[in-house]
């Protein structure tokens, strides 16, 4: 077990280094790092001094090493546009994104799971046909259109819910939360639904497909032939076997929720890291883009690690060495 985890951690570090390299290349070679600091009038000598101060005259390998070192201590430089430390900008906006992501992930997991199981166990029921048709429509609707549709219905026509922002927020140390005020709760409903719909559809379809596959297996047939109760076959045998492949995808989907927040945050003018990223892409604010890339990569790597360990816990074939025999 420890060997397995250590290997995975080692691999994760490699992935992070690769991502850091990409981020470094982007920062170093896309756009001119001096451009942001120097104005047109800055003299050539001053430029040379600045290059030296920033370490841009040293070999690229050293520059990368120092980039990684600074990255480890949370320093990703100064935003070209805002002239603020990138790390602080991200930290300020992180709570908004995380609250939104967690709310929609919970929605997607619970509803997607329940609907998926229903569709697999009752493949011919009218409700299943209805759900499957709606889900296909759901996959075809771009997230931003769903958001606009919800705004139109609940904000413009009905006037029930706010169409933008986080509502009132409360400061808890460095964390700002919108979940302690009524306006905060009202504000998160529409964005959370918007963000969760796509993942929900995906999870539902995945769980349905995997479970149908499992239900076709011989051990399910054998369980039926032994006269086991239906609930035990469906939820004991079939569901657990379904979870093995689903865990991986579900884990990554949770990560995607944070990354997908880019679009939802734009639609609802949600003050999170996603909209920060969009602004940086629009204005080619390279340090912010690079830092966001590293941040998202770190998130995925951590989720991947957790998923792998979960996987390991669920499936005894990975956990326990195979015995001898002719198989």
């Amino acid at each position: 077990m420890t060997g397995f985890v250590l290997r995975r951690i080692f691999q994760s570090v490699l992935v992070m280094l690769a991502v850091a390299l990409i981020a470094f290349i982007v920062i170093r070679f896309v756009g001119d790092p001096l451009e942001s600091l120097a104005s047109q009038e800055t003299r050539l000598e001053d430029r040379a001094v600045m290059m030296q101060r920033l370490g841009l005259d040293r070999p690229v390998v050293f520059q990368f090493a120092s980039f990684v070192r600074r990255g480890l201590s949370g320093d990703f430089g100064i935003s070209y546009k805002q002239q603020e430390p990138v790390t602080r900008m991200i930290a300020e906006r992180l709570p908004a994104t995380l609250e939104l992501a967690l709310a929609s992930a919970a929605l997607a997991l619970v509803l997607g799971g329940l609907l998926g199981i229903h569709c697999a166990l009752k493949p011919e029921s009218p409700l299943t046909h209805f759900i499957m048709t709606v889900s296909l429509v759901g996959v075809s609707l771009p997230t931003f259109l769903i958001g606009i549709g919800l705004i139109y219905l609940f904000s413009v026509e009905l006037g029930w819910l706010p169409s933008f922002g986080r509502g009132e927020t409360v400061k808890l140390g460095w964390w700002t939360t919108g979940l302690l005020t009524l306006s905060g709760w009202r504000s998160i409903i529409l964005p959370a639904i918007t963000l969760s719909l796509f993942q929900m559809t995906l999870l539902m379809r995945l769980i349905r497909a995997e479970m149908l596959e499992v239900l076709r297996q011989d051990y399910i047939r054998f369980a039926r032939a032994r006269g086991l109760p239906q609930s035990s076959i469906h939820f004991g045998h079939a569901l657990k076997n379904t979870l093995v492949p689903v865990i991986t995808v579900a884990g990554l989907q949770l990560g995607s929720v944070i990354a997908f927040a880019v679009v939802t945050e734009t639609v609802f003018q949600w003050p999170g890291v996603g909209s920060l990223f969009i602004n940086s892409v629009q204005s080619v604010d390279v340090p912010v883009m690079a830092a966001y890339l590293v941040f998202i990569a770190l998130l995925f790597v951590v989720i991947n690690l957790i998923v792998d360990i979960l996987y390991y816990a669920v499936d005894p074939r990975l956990r326990i060495a195979r015995g001898g025999g002719e198989t």
């Binding site: 995607s256 880019v262 990223f277 969009i278 940086s280 883009m289 991947n304």
Partner: peptide, 15 residues
């Protein structure tokens, strides 16, 4: 593949 396509597209576009 672990990153959503829209994110990759945004990054590629930005770069």
């Amino acid at each position: 593949l672990t990153f959503p396509t829209i994110l990759i597209a945004l990054l590629v576009f930005g770069i």
